[in-house]
Structures are given as C-alpha cells and as structure tokens.
C-alpha cells in the first residue's frame, strides 16, 4: 500500500531563481540543496507545515532524460505556463494573497469564491502556475 507522496518534480528554468522564489517569496524551506557526483544539483523545498512532501526543483537539461530538443521544448512549455506546481493551501487566502503580492508574486486571478473554498491563481518565476486555496469549512 502506498502511504504517502514524498517528492514531486517541478521543472524550473533556473534553480537559483526558483529557490529565491520558493524560499523568499512563498516562504518554503530548503529540504536539500546538494551537488552530487557529476555536478547534478539536487534541490528540494517544502512547505513549513508539511516537511514530508518535497518539491524537487529541477532544470530540464540535455542528458539521459532529455535530448537537447526535448529539454528545449520542456523549457518553452514551462515558460508558456503549460505546467502547474499544484495547489498550495492556506488558512486565509486573502491575507496570504496580499502578503505575496507585497513580495512581488504575480497573480493571474485574485482570491475568488469557489464551491470548495477561496482560491487565487499565481505564477512562479519560471511560469508554473499554482493555486492558493483556502478550503471551505
């Protein structure tokens, strides 16, 4: 039986810039930031209240996983906003939205009432969109 999710990959255009965004703007913490044999940087972040689910901030690069053409295509799709980083939950969507806007986070939809709660839609500095959601009680 699968019990939980430990890592989810988020493709980013630049790991340094993505780290700045997720750490200094969204308030995530660094799980691991290490360079392993071969120069690959293993960079993960997590929400403070959920340390057992880490986002792997990975740059699509030419290598065993991608051809150069495929890596370029993935990067273009990321930049175009084709991918989402998921749903980030908050206890107060409006307040968190205002805090993030003050930090310069771009939103494509302000907090809006939905049947499942209040939701705003933001974009990270690579182009991945994310939902900022306050669940309905």
């Amino acid at each position: 039986m699968i019990q939980s999710i430990a890592h989810v990959t988020v493709y980013v255009l630049n790991q340094d810039e993505a780290l700045d965004f997720y750490q200094n703007k969204l308030g995530f913490e660094v799980g691991t930031d290490m360079t392993v044999d071969g120069g690959f940087r293993w960079l993960t972040v997590f929400a403070k209240a959920q340390p057992d689910l880490e986002l792997v901030l990975a740059e699509p690069k030419e290598g065993p996983m991608f051809t150069k053409d495929a890596a370029d295509k993935i990067r273009a799709l990321v930049a175009d906003g084709a991918f989402g980083a998921g749903v980030f939950e908050t206890a107060n969507c409006q307040k968190t939205y205002e805090e993030l806007v003050a930090k310069g986070v771009e939103f494509i939809q302000p907090p809006t009432e939905q049947f499942y709660g209040v939701e705003a839609l933001g974009v990270d500095n690579s182009g991945n969109w994310f939902s900022l959601t306050q669940r309905a009680k």
């Binding site: 392993v36 044999d37 990975a58 290598g63 996983m65």
Partner: peptide, 23 residues
C-alpha cells in the same frame, strides 16, 4: 560511495531521479 572527495554520492538522492536525470 562518492566518486569525488567531499561530495555527495549519487546514492544520496532517490534512484529514479539519479537514473532519469543523469543516467
């Protein structure tokens, strides 16, 4: 386990990533 001194060996990260990202 590390090939280079004072670096993290590839085994430090989940094998699926090690395999897919750098072979």
């Amino acid at each position: 386990l590390a090939n280079d001194p004072l670096t993290h060996p590839i085994q430090s990260i989940p094998m699926c990533y090690a395999h897919r990202l750098f072979g």
